[in-house]
Design a protein around this nucleic acid. Sequence first.
DNA 1: GTCTATAGGAGGATAGAC
DNA 2: GTCTATCCTCCTATAGAC
Lengths: 239, 239
Amino acid sequence: MRKLAIETDTRDTRERILEEAEALFAEHGFDGASMRMITSRAGVNLAAANYHFRTKEALFQAVFQRRMDQLNSARAKALAEMENEAAGGALKPSRILEGFFGPALAMATDTEHGGHTFMRLLGQTYTEPAQFVRRFLAEEYADVMHRYAAALYKALPGVPVAEILWRLHFMMGAVSYAISGIDALKPVMPGLDDDPAKLGPRLMAFLLGGLRAPLAEFAPAPAAAFEPRPVSSINAANP
Amino acid sequence: MRKLAIETDTRDTRERILEEAEALFAEHGFDGASMRMITSRAGVNLAAANYHFRTKEALFQAVFQRRMDQLNSARAKALAEMENEAAGGALKPSRILEGFFGPALAMATDTEHGGHTFMRLLGQTYTEPAQFVRRFLAEEYADVMHRYAAALYKALPGVPVAEILWRLHFMMGAVSYAISGIDALKPVMPGLDDDPAKLGPRLMAFLLGGLRAPLAEFAPAPAAAFEPRPVSSINAANP
DNA sequence: GTCTATAGGAGGATAGAC
DNA sequence: GTCTATCCTCCTATAGAC
Protein backbone atom coordinates (compact mmCIF):
# COMPACT_ATOMS: atom_id res chain seq x y z
CA MET A 1 0.00 0.00 0.00
CA ARG A 2 1.36 3.35 -1.00
CA LYS A 3 0.34 6.68 0.38
CA LEU A 4 -3.07 7.76 -0.79
CA ALA A 5 -2.06 11.23 -1.89
CA ILE A 6 0.53 9.86 -4.29
CA GLU A 7 -1.76 7.14 -5.58
CA THR A 8 -4.40 9.70 -6.43
CA ASP A 9 -2.01 11.98 -8.18
CA THR A 10 -0.40 9.35 -10.34
CA ARG A 11 -3.72 7.85 -11.25
CA ASP A 12 -5.04 11.11 -12.49
CA THR A 13 -2.36 11.40 -15.10
CA ARG A 14 -2.19 7.75 -16.02
CA GLU A 15 -5.94 7.55 -16.20
CA ARG A 16 -6.23 10.55 -18.47
CA ILE A 17 -3.67 9.08 -20.82
CA LEU A 18 -5.40 5.72 -20.84
CA GLU A 19 -8.75 7.27 -21.60
CA GLU A 20 -7.57 9.39 -24.47
CA ALA A 21 -5.48 6.55 -25.82
CA GLU A 22 -8.52 4.30 -25.83
CA ALA A 23 -10.57 6.86 -27.72
CA LEU A 24 -7.87 7.67 -30.24
CA PHE A 25 -6.88 4.06 -30.89
CA ALA A 26 -10.54 3.32 -31.52
CA GLU A 27 -10.84 6.25 -33.87
CA HIS A 28 -7.60 5.95 -35.82
CA GLY A 29 -6.16 2.53 -35.13
CA PHE A 30 -2.83 1.70 -33.53
CA ASP A 31 -0.64 3.17 -36.23
CA GLY A 32 -3.00 6.02 -36.98
CA ALA A 33 -3.04 7.40 -33.46
CA SER A 34 0.21 9.04 -32.44
CA MET A 35 1.60 9.50 -28.97
CA ARG A 36 1.59 13.20 -29.62
CA MET A 37 -2.14 13.21 -30.35
CA ILE A 38 -2.84 11.18 -27.25
CA THR A 39 -0.78 13.21 -24.85
CA SER A 40 -1.89 16.56 -26.19
CA ARG A 41 -5.53 15.57 -25.90
CA ALA A 42 -4.90 14.30 -22.39
CA GLY A 43 -3.26 17.59 -21.55
CA VAL A 44 -0.05 15.95 -20.43
CA ASN A 45 3.48 16.00 -21.73
CA LEU A 46 4.70 13.46 -24.20
CA ALA A 47 7.46 12.40 -21.86
CA ALA A 48 4.96 11.71 -19.10
CA ALA A 49 3.33 9.02 -21.20
CA ASN A 50 6.67 7.41 -21.83
CA TYR A 51 7.43 7.53 -18.15
CA HIS A 52 4.23 5.72 -17.27
CA PHE A 53 4.06 3.22 -20.09
CA ARG A 54 7.58 3.09 -21.57
CA THR A 55 6.42 2.42 -25.14
CA LYS A 56 3.43 2.92 -27.34
CA GLU A 57 2.92 -0.83 -27.53
CA ALA A 58 2.83 -1.11 -23.77
CA LEU A 59 0.31 1.71 -23.60
CA PHE A 60 -1.89 -0.13 -26.05
CA GLN A 61 -1.69 -3.27 -23.98
CA ALA A 62 -2.53 -1.36 -20.83
CA VAL A 63 -5.62 0.06 -22.54
CA PHE A 64 -6.69 -3.47 -23.33
CA GLN A 65 -5.77 -5.12 -20.12
CA ARG A 66 -8.09 -3.25 -17.82
CA ARG A 67 -11.13 -3.75 -20.02
CA MET A 68 -10.44 -7.33 -21.02
CA ASP A 69 -9.98 -8.30 -17.42
CA GLN A 70 -13.34 -6.80 -16.60
CA LEU A 71 -15.00 -8.39 -19.62
CA ASN A 72 -13.59 -11.86 -19.29
CA SER A 73 -14.02 -12.11 -15.57
CA ALA A 74 -17.68 -11.17 -16.01
CA ARG A 75 -17.91 -13.99 -18.52
CA ALA A 76 -16.16 -16.46 -16.29
CA LYS A 77 -18.31 -15.50 -13.34
CA ALA A 78 -21.53 -15.86 -15.32
CA LEU A 79 -20.56 -19.32 -16.49
CA ALA A 80 -19.46 -20.45 -13.06
CA GLU A 81 -22.74 -19.36 -11.54
CA MET A 82 -24.77 -21.12 -14.19
CA GLU A 83 -22.81 -24.31 -13.83
CA ASN A 84 -23.12 -24.17 -10.11
CA GLU A 85 -26.85 -23.75 -10.44
CA ALA A 86 -27.18 -26.62 -12.89
CA ALA A 87 -25.24 -28.93 -10.56
CA GLY A 88 -23.38 -30.82 -13.23
CA GLY A 89 -26.16 -30.91 -15.78
CA ALA A 90 -25.98 -29.41 -19.24
CA LEU A 91 -26.88 -25.77 -19.74
CA LYS A 92 -29.23 -24.35 -22.32
CA PRO A 93 -27.29 -23.05 -25.31
CA SER A 94 -29.15 -19.77 -25.17
CA ARG A 95 -27.98 -19.15 -21.63
CA ILE A 96 -24.41 -19.97 -22.53
CA LEU A 97 -24.46 -17.47 -25.36
CA GLU A 98 -25.96 -14.92 -23.06
CA GLY A 99 -23.16 -15.47 -20.60
CA PHE A 100 -20.51 -15.03 -23.24
CA PHE A 101 -21.88 -12.23 -25.36
CA GLY A 102 -24.06 -10.50 -22.78
CA PRO A 103 -21.15 -8.78 -21.06
CA ALA A 104 -19.78 -7.63 -24.40
CA LEU A 105 -23.10 -6.16 -25.43
CA ALA A 106 -23.57 -4.55 -22.04
CA MET A 107 -20.16 -2.96 -22.31
CA ALA A 108 -20.89 -1.86 -25.87
CA THR A 109 -23.99 0.00 -24.80
CA ASP A 110 -22.31 1.57 -21.80
CA THR A 111 -21.51 5.02 -23.15
CA GLU A 112 -21.01 6.46 -19.71
CA HIS A 113 -17.73 4.83 -18.76
CA GLY A 114 -16.24 4.48 -22.21
CA GLY A 115 -17.24 0.87 -22.64
CA HIS A 116 -18.71 1.64 -26.02
CA THR A 117 -15.47 3.16 -27.19
CA PHE A 118 -13.50 0.16 -26.08
CA MET A 119 -15.77 -2.32 -27.76
CA ARG A 120 -15.40 -0.49 -31.04
CA LEU A 121 -11.68 -0.78 -30.57
CA LEU A 122 -11.92 -4.46 -29.71
CA GLY A 123 -13.95 -5.13 -32.81
CA GLN A 124 -11.22 -3.72 -35.00
CA THR A 125 -8.45 -5.34 -33.15
CA TYR A 126 -9.28 -8.94 -33.74
CA THR A 127 -8.36 -8.59 -37.38
CA GLU A 128 -5.63 -6.06 -36.67
CA PRO A 129 -2.54 -6.67 -38.77
CA ALA A 130 -0.06 -5.92 -36.01
CA GLN A 131 1.05 -9.28 -34.73
CA PHE A 132 1.71 -8.35 -31.16
CA VAL A 133 -1.95 -7.34 -30.87
CA ARG A 134 -3.26 -10.66 -32.09
CA ARG A 135 -0.94 -12.62 -29.86
CA PHE A 136 -2.01 -10.59 -26.90
CA LEU A 137 -5.69 -11.03 -27.65
CA ALA A 138 -5.31 -14.75 -28.13
CA GLU A 139 -3.77 -15.05 -24.69
CA GLU A 140 -6.49 -12.97 -23.11
CA TYR A 141 -9.24 -15.04 -24.66
CA ALA A 142 -7.80 -18.52 -24.42
CA ASP A 143 -8.98 -19.44 -20.96
CA VAL A 144 -12.57 -18.22 -20.99
CA MET A 145 -13.01 -19.35 -24.56
CA HIS A 146 -12.15 -22.93 -23.72
CA ARG A 147 -14.49 -22.97 -20.79
CA TYR A 148 -17.39 -21.77 -22.87
CA ALA A 149 -16.53 -24.19 -25.66
CA ALA A 150 -16.63 -27.00 -23.13
CA ALA A 151 -20.03 -25.88 -21.86
CA LEU A 152 -21.38 -25.73 -25.40
CA TYR A 153 -19.98 -29.13 -26.14
CA LYS A 154 -21.87 -30.51 -23.20
CA ALA A 155 -25.04 -28.68 -24.19
CA LEU A 156 -24.97 -29.91 -27.78
CA PRO A 157 -24.00 -33.57 -27.58
CA GLY A 158 -24.50 -34.26 -31.27
CA VAL A 159 -22.16 -31.56 -32.49
CA PRO A 160 -18.44 -32.26 -32.94
CA VAL A 161 -16.17 -30.04 -30.93
CA ALA A 162 -14.46 -28.64 -34.03
CA GLU A 163 -17.81 -27.45 -35.27
CA ILE A 164 -18.53 -25.74 -31.99
CA LEU A 165 -15.24 -23.90 -32.04
CA TRP A 166 -15.81 -22.71 -35.56
CA ARG A 167 -19.27 -21.53 -34.74
CA LEU A 168 -18.01 -19.70 -31.71
CA HIS A 169 -15.59 -18.01 -34.05
CA PHE A 170 -18.32 -17.11 -36.53
CA MET A 171 -20.43 -15.75 -33.73
CA MET A 172 -17.64 -13.53 -32.56
CA GLY A 173 -17.46 -12.13 -36.07
CA ALA A 174 -21.15 -11.38 -36.10
CA VAL A 175 -20.95 -9.71 -32.72
CA SER A 176 -17.92 -7.73 -33.73
CA TYR A 177 -19.70 -6.35 -36.77
CA ALA A 178 -22.82 -5.74 -34.76
CA ILE A 179 -20.89 -3.56 -32.36
CA SER A 180 -18.28 -1.80 -34.42
CA GLY A 181 -20.00 -1.88 -37.76
CA ILE A 182 -23.05 0.17 -36.93
CA ASP A 183 -21.35 3.28 -38.20
CA ALA A 184 -20.23 1.40 -41.29
CA LEU A 185 -23.69 0.04 -41.95
CA LYS A 186 -25.54 3.32 -41.81
CA PRO A 187 -24.24 4.84 -45.04
CA VAL A 188 -25.16 1.68 -46.93
CA MET A 189 -28.54 1.37 -45.30
CA PRO A 190 -30.14 4.75 -44.82
CA GLY A 191 -33.26 4.72 -42.70
CA LEU A 192 -32.38 1.44 -41.05
CA ASP A 193 -33.94 0.83 -37.66
CA ASP A 194 -30.89 0.94 -35.42
CA ASP A 195 -32.54 1.19 -32.02
CA PRO A 196 -29.75 0.11 -29.66
CA ALA A 197 -32.21 -1.57 -27.32
CA LYS A 198 -33.22 -3.96 -30.08
CA LEU A 199 -29.69 -4.86 -31.07
CA GLY A 200 -29.21 -7.37 -28.28
CA PRO A 201 -32.30 -9.49 -28.96
CA ARG A 202 -31.71 -9.28 -32.70
CA LEU A 203 -28.19 -10.47 -32.40
CA MET A 204 -28.93 -13.19 -29.90
CA ALA A 205 -31.67 -14.64 -32.06
CA PHE A 206 -29.30 -14.74 -35.01
CA LEU A 207 -26.47 -16.30 -33.02
CA LEU A 208 -28.64 -19.00 -31.56
CA GLY A 209 -29.99 -19.87 -34.97
CA GLY A 210 -26.48 -20.20 -36.34
CA LEU A 211 -25.28 -22.21 -33.39
CA ARG A 212 -28.10 -24.71 -33.69
CA ALA A 213 -28.08 -24.97 -37.47
CA PRO A 214 -28.13 -28.52 -38.83
CA LEU A 215 -24.72 -29.71 -39.91
CA ALA A 216 -23.66 -29.72 -43.56
CA GLU A 217 -27.00 -28.67 -44.89
CA PHE A 218 -25.14 -27.63 -47.99
CA ALA A 219 -23.76 -29.85 -50.69
CA PRO A 220 -20.06 -30.77 -50.27
CA ALA A 221 -18.78 -27.58 -51.84
CA PRO A 222 -20.76 -24.48 -52.68
CA ALA A 223 -20.73 -23.88 -56.40
CA ALA A 224 -19.08 -20.53 -56.77
CA ALA A 225 -20.24 -18.08 -59.37
CA PHE A 226 -16.73 -16.76 -59.47
CA GLU A 227 -14.02 -17.64 -61.89
CA PRO A 228 -10.56 -17.16 -60.37
CA ARG A 229 -8.51 -15.22 -62.84
CA PRO A 230 -5.72 -12.71 -62.89
CA VAL A 231 -6.99 -9.20 -62.42
CA SER A 232 -6.32 -6.69 -65.13
CA SER A 233 -5.76 -3.27 -63.77
CA ILE A 234 -8.41 -0.85 -64.78
CA ASN A 235 -8.41 2.41 -62.96
CA ALA A 236 -5.47 4.64 -63.58
CA ALA A 237 -4.95 7.86 -61.72
CA ASN A 238 -3.12 9.23 -64.74
CA PRO A 239 -4.29 9.23 -68.35
CA MET B 1 -7.55 2.57 -77.92
CA ARG B 2 -3.96 3.22 -77.20
CA LYS B 3 -1.00 1.50 -78.70
CA LEU B 4 -0.50 -1.99 -77.35
CA ALA B 5 3.21 -1.69 -76.69
CA ILE B 6 2.72 1.22 -74.35
CA GLU B 7 -0.23 -0.41 -72.58
CA THR B 8 1.83 -3.51 -71.88
CA ASP B 9 4.77 -1.60 -70.55
CA THR B 10 2.83 0.58 -68.21
CA ARG B 11 0.87 -2.31 -66.89
CA ASP B 12 3.96 -4.20 -65.89
CA THR B 13 5.06 -1.53 -63.50
CA ARG B 14 1.62 -0.57 -62.30
CA GLU B 15 0.71 -4.19 -61.82
CA ARG B 16 3.77 -4.95 -59.75
CA ILE B 17 3.05 -2.00 -57.51
CA LEU B 18 -0.58 -3.03 -57.11
CA GLU B 19 0.32 -6.56 -56.19
CA GLU B 20 2.88 -5.66 -53.58
CA ALA B 21 0.62 -2.95 -52.21
CA GLU B 22 -2.16 -5.47 -51.80
CA ALA B 23 0.08 -7.87 -49.95
CA LEU B 24 1.61 -5.25 -47.70
CA PHE B 25 -1.65 -3.51 -46.88
CA ALA B 26 -3.04 -6.89 -45.89
CA GLU B 27 -0.03 -7.63 -43.74
CA HIS B 28 0.47 -4.28 -42.02
CA GLY B 29 -2.67 -2.23 -42.59
CA PHE B 30 -2.96 1.07 -44.38
CA ASP B 31 -0.86 3.09 -41.99
CA GLY B 32 1.53 0.27 -41.25
CA ALA B 33 2.58 -0.28 -44.84
CA SER B 34 4.72 2.48 -46.23
CA MET B 35 5.18 3.54 -49.83
CA ARG B 36 8.85 2.74 -49.42
CA MET B 37 8.13 -0.85 -48.43
CA ILE B 38 5.78 -1.26 -51.33
CA THR B 39 7.96 0.21 -54.02
CA SER B 40 11.12 -1.47 -52.83
CA ARG B 41 9.43 -4.87 -52.76
CA ALA B 42 8.01 -4.20 -56.22
CA GLY B 43 11.49 -3.33 -57.43
CA VAL B 44 10.46 0.08 -58.68
CA ASN B 45 11.30 3.55 -57.63
CA LEU B 46 9.26 5.42 -55.09
CA ALA B 47 8.56 8.20 -57.57
CA ALA B 48 7.14 5.74 -60.08
CA ALA B 49 4.36 4.85 -57.68
CA ASN B 50 3.51 8.47 -57.19
CA TYR B 51 3.45 8.96 -60.92
CA HIS B 52 0.99 6.13 -61.43
CA PHE B 53 -1.24 6.67 -58.44
CA ARG B 54 -0.55 10.21 -57.25
CA THR B 55 -1.13 9.46 -53.56
CA LYS B 56 -1.04 6.58 -51.14
CA GLU B 57 -4.78 6.84 -50.63
CA ALA B 58 -5.40 6.58 -54.34
CA LEU B 59 -3.16 3.53 -54.52
CA PHE B 60 -5.17 1.91 -51.77
CA GLN B 61 -8.37 2.61 -53.62
CA ALA B 62 -6.92 1.20 -56.82
CA VAL B 63 -6.01 -1.99 -55.00
CA PHE B 64 -9.61 -2.26 -53.88
CA GLN B 65 -11.28 -1.21 -57.03
CA ARG B 66 -10.11 -4.01 -59.26
CA ARG B 67 -11.03 -6.75 -56.81
CA MET B 68 -14.29 -5.30 -55.63
CA ASP B 69 -15.44 -4.85 -59.19
CA GLN B 70 -14.69 -8.49 -59.84
CA LEU B 71 -16.34 -9.62 -56.62
CA ASN B 72 -19.48 -7.57 -56.83
CA SER B 73 -20.09 -8.16 -60.49
CA ALA B 74 -19.83 -11.91 -59.82
CA ARG B 75 -22.45 -11.43 -57.14
CA ALA B 76 -24.71 -9.35 -59.33
CA LYS B 77 -24.40 -11.83 -62.17
CA ALA B 78 -25.21 -14.80 -59.94
CA LEU B 79 -28.33 -13.09 -58.62
CA ALA B 80 -29.49 -11.99 -62.05
CA GLU B 81 -29.15 -15.52 -63.38
CA MET B 82 -31.06 -17.00 -60.50
CA GLU B 83 -33.84 -14.46 -60.79
CA ASN B 84 -34.07 -15.01 -64.47
CA GLU B 85 -34.31 -18.74 -63.91
CA ALA B 86 -37.00 -18.34 -61.26
CA ALA B 87 -39.05 -16.15 -63.59
CA GLY B 88 -40.36 -13.78 -60.93
CA GLY B 89 -40.80 -16.37 -58.19
CA ALA B 90 -39.01 -16.28 -54.86
CA LEU B 91 -35.57 -17.83 -54.54
CA LYS B 92 -34.43 -20.26 -51.91
CA PRO B 93 -32.57 -18.44 -49.12
CA SER B 94 -29.72 -20.91 -49.34
CA ARG B 95 -29.16 -20.09 -52.98
CA ILE B 96 -29.23 -16.37 -52.31
CA LEU B 97 -26.59 -16.74 -49.64
CA GLU B 98 -24.54 -18.85 -51.98
CA GLY B 99 -24.73 -16.15 -54.61
CA PHE B 100 -23.61 -13.48 -52.20
CA PHE B 101 -20.97 -15.25 -50.16
CA GLY B 102 -19.88 -17.87 -52.67
CA PRO B 103 -17.77 -15.45 -54.71
CA ALA B 104 -16.13 -14.14 -51.56
CA LEU B 105 -15.26 -17.64 -50.39
CA ALA B 106 -14.03 -18.61 -53.80
CA MET B 107 -11.80 -15.59 -53.90
CA ALA B 108 -10.60 -16.30 -50.39
CA THR B 109 -9.46 -19.78 -51.35
CA ASP B 110 -7.83 -18.64 -54.57
CA THR B 111 -4.20 -18.47 -53.53
CA GLU B 112 -3.00 -18.47 -57.11
CA HIS B 113 -4.01 -14.99 -58.18
CA GLY B 114 -3.78 -13.26 -54.84
CA GLY B 115 -7.47 -13.48 -54.07
CA HIS B 116 -6.72 -14.89 -50.65
CA THR B 117 -4.51 -11.94 -49.83
CA PHE B 118 -7.14 -9.48 -50.88
CA MET B 119 -9.89 -11.11 -48.88
CA ARG B 120 -7.75 -10.94 -45.77
CA LEU B 121 -7.37 -7.26 -46.49
CA LEU B 122 -11.07 -6.80 -47.08
CA GLY B 123 -11.89 -8.49 -43.80
CA GLN B 124 -9.79 -5.97 -41.93
CA THR B 125 -11.00 -3.04 -43.89
CA TYR B 126 -14.64 -3.14 -43.02
CA THR B 127 -13.83 -2.10 -39.49
CA GLU B 128 -10.90 0.04 -40.58
CA PRO B 129 -10.77 3.31 -38.71
CA ALA B 130 -9.75 5.41 -41.70
CA GLN B 131 -12.91 7.11 -42.80
CA PHE B 132 -12.16 7.37 -46.47
CA VAL B 133 -11.94 3.60 -46.56
CA ARG B 134 -15.32 3.06 -44.99
CA ARG B 135 -16.99 5.57 -47.25
CA PHE B 136 -15.44 3.94 -50.26
CA LEU B 137 -16.50 0.46 -49.20
CA ALA B 138 -20.04 1.60 -48.49
CA GLU B 139 -20.31 2.99 -52.00
CA GLU B 140 -18.94 -0.19 -53.51
CA TYR B 141 -21.36 -2.38 -51.62
CA ALA B 142 -24.50 -0.29 -51.74
CA ASP B 143 -25.88 -1.47 -55.04
CA VAL B 144 -25.36 -5.22 -54.82
CA MET B 145 -26.31 -5.22 -51.16
CA HIS B 146 -29.70 -3.72 -51.83
CA ARG B 147 -30.40 -6.18 -54.58
CA TYR B 148 -29.63 -9.12 -52.35
CA ALA B 149 -31.62 -7.65 -49.50
CA ALA B 150 -34.58 -7.36 -51.84
CA ALA B 151 -34.21 -10.98 -52.93
CA LEU B 152 -34.07 -12.12 -49.31
CA TYR B 153 -37.08 -10.05 -48.45
CA LYS B 154 -39.01 -11.78 -51.18
CA ALA B 155 -37.75 -15.19 -50.07
CA LEU B 156 -38.67 -14.66 -46.44
CA PRO B 157 -42.07 -13.01 -46.47
CA GLY B 158 -42.57 -13.19 -42.71
CA VAL B 159 -39.39 -11.32 -41.85
CA PRO B 160 -39.33 -7.52 -41.63
CA VAL B 161 -36.86 -5.84 -43.93
CA ALA B 162 -34.93 -4.24 -41.07
CA GLU B 163 -34.34 -7.69 -39.65
CA ILE B 164 -33.01 -8.92 -42.98
CA LEU B 165 -30.60 -6.05 -43.29
CA TRP B 166 -29.28 -6.64 -39.82
CA ARG B 167 -28.85 -10.33 -40.44
CA LEU B 168 -27.04 -9.62 -43.66
CA HIS B 169 -24.75 -7.44 -41.63
CA PHE B 170 -24.21 -10.13 -39.00
CA MET B 171 -23.48 -12.63 -41.72
CA MET B 172 -20.86 -10.40 -43.23
CA GLY B 173 -19.20 -10.29 -39.86
CA ALA B 174 -19.17 -14.05 -39.58
CA VAL B 175 -17.73 -14.38 -43.08
CA SER B 176 -15.15 -11.74 -42.42
CA TYR B 177 -13.93 -13.56 -39.34
CA ALA B 178 -14.07 -16.86 -41.15
CA ILE B 179 -11.75 -15.55 -43.82
CA SER B 180 -9.39 -13.22 -42.07
CA GLY B 181 -9.54 -14.69 -38.64
CA ILE B 182 -8.18 -18.12 -39.35
CA ASP B 183 -4.71 -16.99 -38.38
CA ALA B 184 -6.13 -15.34 -35.29
CA LEU B 185 -8.05 -18.42 -34.28
CA LYS B 186 -5.18 -20.87 -34.49
CA PRO B 187 -3.20 -19.70 -31.47
CA VAL B 188 -6.34 -19.88 -29.31
CA MET B 189 -7.40 -23.23 -30.66
CA PRO B 190 -4.43 -25.48 -31.24
CA GLY B 191 -5.22 -28.66 -33.10
CA LEU B 192 -8.39 -27.25 -34.61
CA ASP B 193 -9.55 -28.85 -37.83
CA ASP B 194 -9.03 -26.05 -40.30
CA ASP B 195 -9.36 -27.91 -43.58
CA PRO B 196 -10.05 -25.11 -46.07
CA ALA B 197 -12.34 -27.33 -48.09
CA LYS B 198 -14.65 -27.69 -45.13
CA LEU B 199 -14.80 -24.00 -44.33
CA GLY B 200 -17.37 -23.20 -47.02
CA PRO B 201 -19.99 -25.76 -45.95
CA ARG B 202 -19.38 -25.00 -42.29
CA LEU B 203 -19.90 -21.34 -42.78
CA MET B 204 -22.90 -21.69 -45.05
CA ALA B 205 -24.67 -23.96 -42.59
CA PHE B 206 -24.10 -21.44 -39.84
CA LEU B 207 -25.23 -18.49 -41.92
CA LEU B 208 -28.39 -20.17 -43.05
CA GLY B 209 -29.23 -21.12 -39.48
CA GLY B 210 -28.80 -17.54 -38.39
CA LEU B 211 -30.76 -16.14 -41.28
CA ARG B 212 -33.72 -18.40 -40.61
CA ALA B 213 -33.70 -18.09 -36.85
CA PRO B 214 -37.08 -17.38 -35.27
CA LEU B 215 -37.52 -13.74 -34.36
CA ALA B 216 -37.10 -12.51 -30.83
CA GLU B 217 -36.58 -15.88 -29.30
CA PHE B 218 -34.99 -14.06 -26.44
CA ALA B 219 -36.70 -12.10 -23.73
CA PRO B 220 -36.90 -8.33 -24.35
CA ALA B 221 -33.42 -7.65 -23.10
CA PRO B 222 -30.69 -10.16 -22.28
CA ALA B 223 -29.81 -9.97 -18.63
CA ALA B 224 -26.18 -8.95 -18.61
CA ALA B 225 -23.80 -10.39 -16.07
CA PHE B 226 -21.86 -7.20 -16.33
CA GLU B 227 -22.01 -4.20 -14.11
CA PRO B 228 -20.96 -1.05 -15.91
CA ARG B 229 -18.50 0.78 -13.74
CA PRO B 230 -15.49 2.98 -14.08
CA VAL B 231 -12.33 1.04 -14.65
CA SER B 232 -9.57 1.38 -12.16
CA SER B 233 -6.20 1.16 -13.76
CA ILE B 234 -4.31 -1.87 -12.69
CA ASN B 235 -1.25 -2.68 -14.67
CA ALA B 236 1.55 -0.20 -14.46
CA ALA B 237 4.65 -0.45 -16.56
CA ASN B 238 6.60 1.27 -13.81
CA PRO B 239 6.71 0.42 -10.13
C1' DG C 1 7.63 6.75 -67.97
C1' DT C 2 11.11 6.27 -64.90
C1' DC C 3 14.79 7.81 -62.39
C1' DT C 4 17.85 10.73 -58.53
C1' DA C 5 17.68 13.85 -55.06
C1' DT C 6 15.58 16.33 -51.65
C1' DA C 7 12.23 19.08 -49.43
C1' DG C 8 9.57 19.36 -45.34
C1' DG C 9 7.39 17.40 -41.71
C1' DA C 10 5.76 13.82 -38.19
C1' DG C 11 6.87 9.81 -35.78
C1' DG C 12 8.68 7.36 -31.21
C1' DA C 13 11.97 7.59 -27.90
C1' DT C 14 15.39 9.61 -24.47
C1' DA C 15 18.67 12.59 -21.57
C1' DG C 16 18.77 15.49 -18.05
C1' DA C 17 17.03 19.70 -15.45
C1' DC C 18 13.66 20.60 -11.96
C1' DG D 1 6.69 12.60 -11.54
C1' DT D 2 6.83 15.96 -14.81
C1' DC D 3 8.97 19.08 -17.75
C1' DT D 4 12.10 20.99 -22.03
C1' DA D 5 14.86 20.04 -25.63
C1' DT D 6 16.57 17.12 -28.89
C1' DC D 7 17.98 12.80 -31.61
C1' DC D 8 17.20 10.16 -35.30
C1' DT D 9 14.33 7.54 -38.13
C1' DC D 10 10.75 7.35 -41.33
C1' DC D 11 7.17 9.28 -43.87
C1' DT D 12 4.66 11.38 -48.29
C1' DA D 13 5.24 14.17 -51.97
C1' DT D 14 7.58 16.77 -55.62
C1' DA D 15 11.07 19.03 -58.75
C1' DG D 16 13.78 18.18 -62.42
C1' DA D 17 17.33 15.25 -65.13
C1' DC D 18 17.20 11.54 -68.47
